[in-house]
């Protein structure tokens, strides 16, 4: 027997936004309550989840192919001269216009590695851009991975991808408010591999 529904059904755009975790704090309670009891909206979200996950993974795979072609092209057409000229220009610019006080702080590097013992994991300052450097040792060798940051309630606060070749350099994420977060590494298809705890700012 069908269950009673609560409130208005989610329209197509709302289903997509919910599937991509782009729901406002005001919308989330109403939508989640609605989805508790509405079969048709749950089916729509599940279908959309499959579509979004597949498109994201496929886009990641396609994105890598052009980069590989570009690397081969660069091997035949060196670009050192223009790059050197650009660096020289930047150096002159920095000398003539030195950094002023009050600019945005440099990103704080956070090395995410498996740890043992008490404590949640890594610590980072609040309201400062972070540079996450996950340890990918032992993971299946994908050319890129999914990287997601969730809060203590499991709500995603940031999502992106991480090229394996760029793991040491890290991935920049926006500043976080004080609290406990978890950084999740997954396959391009969304299979969760690892999760690292992160205490930010006043949670210490």
């Amino acid at each position: 027997m069908p269950a009673p529904a609560n409130g208005r059904h989610l329209d197509g755009e709302e289903v997509l936004r919910y599937s991509m975790d782009e729901v406002t704090a005001e919308e989330l309670p109403r939508w989640e309550e609605h989805l508790l009891t509405c079969d048709s909206c749950r089916s729509a979200v599940s279908e959309c989840d499959a579509h979004v996950t597949a498109m994201r993974s496929a886009a990641a795979e396609l994105r890598l192919a052009p980069r590989q072609r570009e690397r081969r092209r660069r091997a035949f057409f060196p670009v050192l001269a223009p790059a050197a000229a650009a660096l020289a220009l930047l150096a002159v610019f920095a000398l003539v216009f030195p950094p002023r006080a009050g600019r945005a702080p440099a990103a704080f590097a956070v090395h995410l590695a498996a740890t043992r013992g008490p404590g949640l994991g890594e610590q980072a300052p609040a309201r400062t851009p972070l540079l996450l450097q996950p340890d990918l040792t032992g993971l299946p060798a994908w050319s890129s991975y999914g990287l997601q940051v969730v809060d203590s309630a499991g709500k995603p606060v940031w999502r992106g991808s991480l090229a394996a070749s760029a793991a040491a350099r890290g991935v920049s994420i926006p500043p976080l408010a004080p609290g406990v977060y978890f950084a999740r590494i997954s396959s391009p298809q969304g299979e969760l591999y690892r999760e690292y705890g992160l205490e930010v700012g006043g949670a210490r």
Binding site: A50, H51, T53, A54, M55, A58, A59, E61, L62, Q189
Partner: peptide, 12 residues
């Protein structure tokens, strides 16, 4: 999920 990725690749 892998089948769906193949479909998405065909779309793209």
């Amino acid at each position: 999920e892998r089948q769906n990725v193949e479909l998405a690749l065909r779309v793209l």
